[in-house]
């Protein structure tokens, strides 16, 4: 007996396997022909992230989503999020800097948080003029993961929590909320200004 979720999961799973194969073939083509196909590979990874995100959103919306908490050094999280997005930023002529003020071990869902940061970085890269900054610090016991850019910033409607968000932001908010520690929930905040003067995306994890 298959549930709708089984069908969707299995479809997403197959698609991601196919996307991995496509990426591997591009990797081989790069090696054989000496070409750089970073943007094509990035597009493949974004497509896979979208699929995962849709599935995660569906799970949490139905109340059957579960976090997979592990202990992660914050520095490693930042390093990996930057690695996934650096070449794309470079391709757009942007500098991606990383600043770790947290330097701690924290408990959270590594893959989901990576996905949220990656989405925020990709979003920032669309609007940045020259710089994107990924940073981490501890604020009032929360781990604050911040993505800033030097672009025009978020429109007022985007920052309004009552408005209907895009799926990336929707999932980020849902997932942030799932992280609970000592009665305190995670959250997402959007604002303008920050160090670079543009949009600021903040993920607070308890």
């Amino acid at each position: 007996m298959h549930t709708v979720l089984d069908l969707i999961s299995s479809g997403v799973h197959d698609a991601k396997n196919q996307l991995f194969l496509a990426e591997s073939l591009l990797v081989r083509a790069e090696a054989e022909h000496g070409v750089a196909l970073d943007e094509a590979r990035y597009a493949i990874e974004l497509a896979a992230q979208r699929l995962s995100r849709v599935l995660a959103a569906y799970r949490f919306e139905r109340g059957i989503g579960r976090l997979s908490i592990s202990i992660v050094p914050v520095s490693e999280l930042l390093e990996e999020a930057a690695l996934v997005n650096r070449r794309h930023c470079e391709h757009l002529g942007l500098t991606l800097d990383v600043d770790d003020h947290a330097d701690e071990l924290r408990a959270f869902d590594r893959e989901l948080v990576l996905d949220i940061l990656s989405n925020a970085l990709q979003n920032a890269s669309r609007f940045a003029r020259a710089r994107v900054l990924l940073s981490a610090q501890i604020e009032d016991g929360f781990l604050c993961l911040r993505v800033e850019d030097d672009g025009p910033g978020f429109a007022a409607a985007e920052m309004d929590e009552q408005s209907s968000p895009g799926i990336g932001l929707f999932v980020a908010r849902v997932l942030a909320l799932q992280h609970v520690r000592e009665g305190r929930h995670g959250r997402v905040e959007l604002r303008n200004g920050g160090i670079l003067g543009g949009g600021v995306f903040e993920l607070y994890l308890p």
Partner: peptide
């Protein structure tokens, strides 16, 4: 794995692999 549900397994078990990585991924990662 391309299977997100594996994370549920790995987060719970004693006998976890040294790491796991979700497809697709680049050689760099």
């Amino acid at each position: 794995t391309a299977e997100q549900s594996y994370e549920q397994v790995v987060a719970a078990v004693e006998l976890a692999p040294d790491d796991y990585i979700i497809k697709p991924f680049s050689p760099d990662r």
